[in-house]
Design a protein around this nucleic acid. Structure first.
Ligand SMILES: [Zn+2]
Ligand SMILES: [Zn+2]
Ligand SMILES: [Zn+2]
Ligand SMILES: [Zn+2]
Lengths: 497, 497
DNA sequence: CTGGGTCAGGGTTCAGT
DNA sequence: ACTGAACCCTGACCCAG
C-alpha cells in the first residue's frame, strides 16, 4: 500500500524535506526556493484545501508544502531494515496533527464539494461523484485530477495577450469622465436619420446599388459632407462610453488574464460551491445587462428609437453584447475573467461553464470568440462592431428600419474610420477582410442568443437545456431554424459582403 | 574526545581501510575503486590540502584518501580496550607538516563561525549517534572544520553564469584586429570639445540647465547633429578596444568560472605559498594597470587631455577599472579568476583575499560588484560605464572640466544607445533605473580607490593597512571623508538622476 | 571493531508536455 | 519553461565475521 503525498495526494516515494511526499512535490519544493516569490494565487489561497488537490496553482502548492512542514534543512531519517520499517505514525511525526489528514476527516470536509473537482480527462463533462470512497475502484483516476497541463510558452502568451484589445491606456479608463451628453450629438443625426432612409455607407455600397437609388443622392451627399465630423464625434462618444462603463472591468480582467497566463497559473479549478457559482452567474448576467443598457443609452442614436424598439434591441442583442465584451477573455478553451459581486468574485473557468452549459453551446461560443478575436480590433472598435451588429436592420425585429439602416451604416463608417486611422493600407485590407468574414456570423450570433440562450430553462437540471414549445432544442436547431421572423438572407436590405 | 576523519575532518567512526575516517569517506573510498578514473579536479589538486575540507571535489577527496594511506587490503585491527585506546600520534601518523600552509590563519578566521551541516530541524526524527564518542562538551564543534558547503544547485549556477556579461561571441575576441587609429576619431570630437564647455547630453540635461547656458546652444546643436554618427563610431572603437585588450582574459576567466561552478568545484583553497601569491597579486595589479592604460589610450577623447590630466585619470581611476573588469567574477562571497604571470597562474580565491585585505574592504568590493552585476550590462556596456565613471567631471581632480563633461555625456550617450538597441522599452526602463542606482556609488568607488587603496601600506603586515598622515584609516573613514578635494555633491555640474 | 552491504533521501537530468 | 520519473551520489545504519 503506497502512502499518499501529503501535499498533492499522489503516490509518495518516501519522506522528502521532512514530509511524506511524491517526487513531484519534492522537486517542486526545491525549485520553489528561488522562485516561490513570484507565485501568486488567484483563487483565495484555497486550491489545496483538503479535498482539492490541484497542481495547477503554484502558489497554493508551495504554501501547502510549507504548511505540512517541508524544510530544506529537515534531518534525514536514515535508513531502516525491512524488519524495522517506519510505521505510519512515525511517518506522520513531522506534521502538526496527523489526524488532520486522516482520510475520514478528509472526506467529511469535502462533502458535497468534492464533485466539483474538475476531471481533467477529456471525455467527462461533469466530475463523477467518486466522493466518499477511500479506495477508488480505478486507481488511475486519481492521477486524472493531477493531469499535467503544459504551461504556455512565450509565443502562446504573446498570442493570448494580443487578444487584450489595444486601447491606448487602460489604466486611465477609470479616471476619465465624459463631459458630453450623448443626446447633444443626436440632435443633428436625427434630422437626416428620421426623415430619410439613407444607406450612406460609401464603402459598403456597391456601384450597382447606387444606380438603383438615384433619388437619394442629393440627401446622401449632404450627409457625406457632414459625415467626417459626425464620425469623429461618435468615435469620441463611444470611446468615452466604453471607458466609463467597461474601463474598470477591462482593466481588471486584462490584469487577471495577463497574470494568469504569464505566471503560469492557468486557473482550472472551482473555487466555490455550485450554488455560489450560480448566484455569481446570475449577478454577472445582470451586471452585463446593466452595463450593456448603459452603453446603448450612451450610444448616439439609440435613445431616439421608440421605447418599444429600445426594449426589443436590448433584449435581442444580449448575445452580441456578451460576445463583444467577453471574447478577448476566451482563449484556448479556457476563460479568463471574474464574475460575481465585487466582494465575492469567482473565476468563471471552463469547469463551471461545462457545469451549466451544453458542450455544443460552449463550442459555438468559443468558436465565435475565436473568429472575433482573429479580426484584431481595438476595444473601441469592438464596441463599434457591437453597434453595427445591434443596428443591423435585418437582424432585429425592431421596427424603425430606416433609422436602423442609417445607424448601421454610420457605425460601420466609424469602425472603418478607426481601423484606417491606425493601420497602413495592407493591414487595413487584411483586417477588413477578416471583419467581413466575421460579420457573416452575425446571424448565427443572433440566432444563438434569441432561439437558444433565451430559451434556456434555468429551473431544470444542469446543464441547462433550451426548451421551445415544450421541446428540448439543440444549438444546431437554433442556428438552423428557418422560422426566425427576420427577412431572409436573399432579400437582405443591407449588403455586408 | 571524538576523533576527526583524516580526510574530511568529519566525525570519525573508527579506522577504515587503515585510516581514521568517517563513514562517508569510507564509503567514498570504496566506491572510488571503480570510479576514481573519471574524477577530475579543476583547482590544482589542492582542494583537500590541510585546513581545507571541501567535499565538492571528488578527485581531490579520493587523492586525499590515497594520500593518507587508505588501502583496501589494510589489515583489520583487533578490538582495543578503552584503557589502551589509540593515541593521537598513532592516529595522525599520516599528517604532513601543518606549518607549510597558513592553516592557522585560515582556521582562526573561520573559527568563530559555526555553521553545521545537518540537524537544524528540531523535533524531527534524527538519527541517533552510535559513534565512538562519549558526550563532548560541545559536540557541534566537531563539524566546524568540515564546514561543509552545499554544492551549488543549477539555479544558482545559472545566476552565476548570467554575470558573465553577454558579449556576442567572446571566442572571437582574440582574433579580431582593429584597423582604426583612435586618434582619427578624435579629430572631430576635439574642435567642439576643446573649445567649448559643452554638456550635450539631451537626455541628462534638464531644461533649467539649458537655460543657464544659452551661449553654448549654437555649438550644442551642431554637436547634436553629429552625435548619432559620433556615438556609433565610439561604440565601435570601444568594442574593438575591449576585444583586443581584454578579450583573451575574459574568455579565460569566463571559461574558468563556468567550469568551476558547473563542475561543482568551488575553489576555496590556496594553491601556493603566500610569497608566491603576493607576487602574483603584484603581477596582476601591474597587468590590470597596463590593460587599463591601453584601454584609456584607445578610448576616443582620452589622448586629447594634457599629459598631466591623463596621468591624474590613470591614477585616480584605478578602482573603477578594477571593479568593471573583475565584478562579473565575484559572486556569492567567492572570486572566480586567475592572477599571476602566464606560466604560473593562481586562483585568487577569497582565502587569499582575506589574507591581504581588510574584511570591510572585501565586503565593500563585493557589495559594489553585486550592485554592478545587478545592472546587467554587456561587456562593452560595462566598459562604456567605465568611461562614464572615468570622465565624470566631479569625480576627478583632472583640470579640463569642459572636456570631461563633454566626454562624460558622450559616453553616457553611447551607453544608453547600446542599451536601447538591445532592450525593449520596459527592459530599458528597468535597466536604466538600475544603472542610475549604481551610478550613485561612483563617489564611493572613487573614495575607496583614492583614499583607501592608494593608502595601503604594502610594507607592513597582513592584511595590508591603509595609512594616511601616519594614521591607520578604515574603509569607512575613506568612504566618509569630507576632504576629498572634489566638488560637493550639491554643486555637481552633472546631473545623474 | 570494521568491511561490506543497504537504501533513504539529497541532488540532477531530461523527455515529455 | 515547468514537471516529475528516473537516475546518481552520499553517508548513516546494520550485521556478519
Ligand atoms: Zn505530491
Ligand atoms: Zn491557489
Ligand atoms: Zn571523512
Ligand atoms: Zn580538487
Amino acid at each position: 500500500m503506497p502512502i499518499k503525498c501529503l501535499i498533492c495526494g499522489n503516490r509518495s516515494t518516501g519522506v522528502h524535506y521532512g514530509v511524506v511526499s511524491c517526487e513531484g512535490c519534492k522537486a517542486f519544493y526545491k525549485r520553489g526556493q528561488t522562485k516561490s516569490l513570484s507565485y501568486k494565487c488567484y483563487f483565495g489561497q484555497a486550491c489545496f484545501e483538503d479535498g482539492i488537490k490541484s497542481n495547477r496553482c503554484k502558489a497554493c502548492r508551495f504554501q501547502k508544502c510549507v504548511q505540512v512542514g517541508m524544510n530544506l534543512q529537515a534531518p534525514k531519517r536514515g535508513r531502516r531494515t525491512k524488519e524495522r520499517a517506519f510505521t505510519i505514525s512515525e511517518l506522520g511525526a513531522c506534521h502538526r496533527d496527523p489526524n488532520h489528514y486522516h482520510s475520514s476527516v478528509y472526506n467529511d470536509k469535502t462533502g458535497g464539494r468534492f464533485r466539483h473537482i474538475a476531471p481533467a480527462g477529456g471525455g467527462g463533462v461533469v466530475a463523477s461523484s467518486t466522493a466518499i470512497s477511500v479506495i477508488t475502484p480505478n486507481p488511475g483516476r486519481d492521477l486524472l485530477s493531477l493531469s499535467y497541463i503544459r504551461p504556455f510558452v512565450n509565443s502562446e502568451r504573446a498570442e493570448a495577450i494580443s487578444l487584450l484589445r489595444n486601447s491606448g491606456s487602460f489604466s486611465d479608463f477609470t479616471r476619465i469622465e465624459i463631459d458630453r451628453t450623448p443626446r447633444a450629438h443626436m440632435r443633428w443625426i436625427d434630422p437626416y436619420a428620421q426623415k430619410n432612409c439613407l444607406d450612406y455607407r460609401e464603402k459598403v455600397m456597391s456601384d450597382e446599388n447606387s444606380r438603383d437609388m438615384p433619388e437619394f443622392l442629393g440627401d446622401y451627399w449632404k450627409v457625406i459632407q457632414q459625415k467626417g465630423f459626425l464620425v469623429g464625434e461618435s468615435l469620441k462618444v463611444v470611446e468615452d462610453a466604453v471607458k466609463v462603463i467597461y474601463g474598470e472591468q477591462l482593466t481588471t480582467w486584462n490584469e487577471f488574464m495577463r497574470e494568469a497566463i504569464f505566471c503560469n497559473n492557468a486557473p482550472k479549478q472551482p473555487q466555490c460551491s455550485l450554488a455560489e457559482m450560480l448566484q455569481a452567474i446570475r449577478d454577472s448576467v445582470a451586471e452585463c445587462q446593466r452595463k450593456g443598457t448603459r452603453f446603448y443609452f450612451l450610444l448616439p442614436g439609440f435613445s431616439d428609437f421608440t421605447q418599444e424598439d429600445q426594449k426589443i434591441l436590448l433584449t435581442e442583442k444580449w448575445s452580441e453584447t456578451w460576445l463583444i465584451v467577453h471574447s478577448p477573455y476566451l482563449w484556448r478553451g479556457e476563460t479568463y475573467y471574474w464574475i460575481g459581486e465585487r466582494n465575492r468574485q469567482y473565476h468563471y473557468c471552463q469547469y463551471w461553464m461545462r457545469q451549466v452549459l451544453h458542450p455544443s453551446h460552449i463550442a459555438k461560443v468559443f468558436s465565435l470568440s475565436e473568429d472575433l478575436n482573429a479580426v484584431k480590433l481595438t476595444v473601441v472598435e469592438s464596441f463599434l462592431l457591437l453597434a453595427v451588429a445591434t443596428f443591423h436592420p435585418d437582424l432585429t425585429t425592431a421596427k424603425n428600419k430606416p433609422f436602423l439602416t442609417f445607424l448601421y451604416g454610420h457605425y460601420m463608417d466609424c469602425l472603418l474610420q478607426s481601423i484606417r486611422s491606425r493601420c497602413n493600407l495592407s493591414e487595413q485590407i487584411l483586417l477588413e477582410k477578416r471583419l467581413r468574414t466575421f460579420m457573416k456570423q452575425f446571424r448565427s450570433v443572433y440566432r444563438l442568443g434569441n432561439f437558444y440562450v433565451r430559451s434556456l430553462d434555468f429551473s431544470g437540471g444542469l446543464p441547462f437545456r433550451a426548451i421551445r414549445d415544450s421541446v428540448v432544442i439543440s444549438v444546431e436547431d437554433a442556428l438552423t431554424t428557418s422560422d426566425d421572423g427576420l427577412p431572409s438572407l436573399e432579400s437582405s436590405s443591407v449588403m455586408v459582403a
